[in-house]
Amino acid sequence: MPLKSKQPRIMPLEPPFDAEVADALERLGPPIRLFRVWARRPELARGVAEWGRYYFSGRSALTVRQRELVIDRTTALCGADYEWGVHIATFAGQAGLDGAQIRSLAAGGPADACWDATDRAVLTAVDELRATADLSDGTWADLVAAVGEDGALDLLLVCGWYHAISFTVRALRLPLEPGTARPESP
């Protein structure tokens, strides 16, 4: 569902940044719009940065591909074009996603022919969490078989986190970052 307003509700900070904001932005990563909004509250930004460092550090039980499947599918289902665009532009190549898979993440489903059994288990879990806020016993068993119990726990947390991020970027009305695109419609 496209955003009605193109004007951000909270304007991202612009340089020059004071020392506390600059420190928060350095911890978050590239100063994209979302990070510059969070940096309005440096203590919030520092907490987000710590969480993000864990999930993007390789300590997660999910592979880069599995993590990106969760994030990309969640943000697409939530209509969070901003976050979808950032992740596809930044991580789709690292995750080994091809054009058919990117289109499926945006407008297809886990049963699409472009997915293997592991990808399908991850995507089915994300879709079911979005639809029901729970997982059936069968979906849970398939997910654990595909990614292990630690991976299943990480999937739940990443999916929930990116629901929160999706709510944030949509409600803030953040415009796309340069060089990013919206998911393709069916």
Rank of each mutant, 00 (worst) to 15 (best):
M1S: 09
P2A: 08
P2C: 01
P2I: 07
K6E: 13
Q7N: 10
R9D: 08
R9A: 13
I10A: 14
P12D: 09
P15Q: 12
P16G: 10
F17R: 05
A19H: 04
E20F: 00
A22N: 05
L25G: 03
L25F: 02
E26V: 00
E26F: 01
E26H: 09
R27T: 00
L28M: 10
L28Y: 01
P30W: 08
I32T: 07
I32M: 10
I32E: 04
R36T: 06
V37L: 14
V37N: 07
A39G: 01
R41E: 09
R41A: 14
P42E: 11
P42S: 08
A45Q: 14
A45L: 14
R46H: 14
R46W: 09
G47N: 15
A49V: 10
A49Y: 06
W51V: 12
Y54V: 04
Y55V: 11
R59W: 06
S60H: 06
A61K: 11
L62E: 02
V64C: 09
V64K: 13
R67T: 09
L69E: 03
D72S: 14
T74A: 12
T74R: 15
T74E: 13
T75Q: 06
L77G: 03
L77T: 01
G79R: 10
Y82C: 10
E83I: 06
G85R: 08
H87R: 14
I88V: 15
I88T: 15
A89I: 08
F91G: 01
A92K: 06
Q94G: 00
A95Y: 12
A95W: 14
A95V: 08
L97I: 08
A100E: 13
R103T: 08
S104V: 05
G109K: 05
G109F: 05
G109H: 05
D112R: 13
A113C: 01
W115S: 04
D116R: 03
T118E: 13
T118F: 01
R120I: 00
R120W: 01
R120P: 00
V122T: 02
L123D: 04
T124R: 14
L129Y: 13
R130H: 15
T132Q: 08
A133R: 15
D137I: 07
G138S: 12
T139A: 15
A141T: 15
A141Y: 03
V144P: 03
A145D: 07
G148Y: 10
E149T: 14
E149R: 15
G151T: 05
G151L: 12
G151C: 09
G151F: 09
L153H: 11
L156D: 02
C159L: 04
C159W: 08
H163W: 08
I165P: 01
R170E: 01
R170A: 01
L172Q: 03
R173G: 02
L174T: 02
P175C: 03
P175K: 05
A181I: 03
R182W: 00
R182F: 00
R182T: 13
P183D: 03
E184V: 14
E184I: 11
S185D: 12
S185H: 11
S185N: 11
